[in-house]
Amino acid sequence: MSGILYLIPIALLLGLIGLAAFLWALKSGQYDDLDGAAQRILFDDEDEPK
C-alpha cells in the first residue's frame, strides 16, 4: 500500500502540468479566436510567412 504514497503525488503532478499548460494556452491568446483557428489549418503555406 505504500506505493500510493508516491503514486498519488505523481498523478497530481501530471494533472497540474496539464492544468498549467491549459492556463498558459489561455493566457497566450490561443482561445481568442476559436472560429479562425479552425479555418487556418486549411490555409496553404506561403513562401514568405509573416
Binding site: 481568442d32 479566436d33 476559436l34 472560429d35 479562425g36 479555418q39 487556418r40 490555409f43 506561403e46 514568405e48 510567412p49 509573416k50
Partner: peptide, 22 residues
Amino acid sequence: VQRIERALARRDEVTHARLNLT
C-alpha cells in the same frame, strides 16, 4: 481571412497582420 491577411502580408512594410474571425 486568408485573402485579407495575404494581401496585407505582400506589402513590404507590414510586419504583422492578423484577423480574428470571431
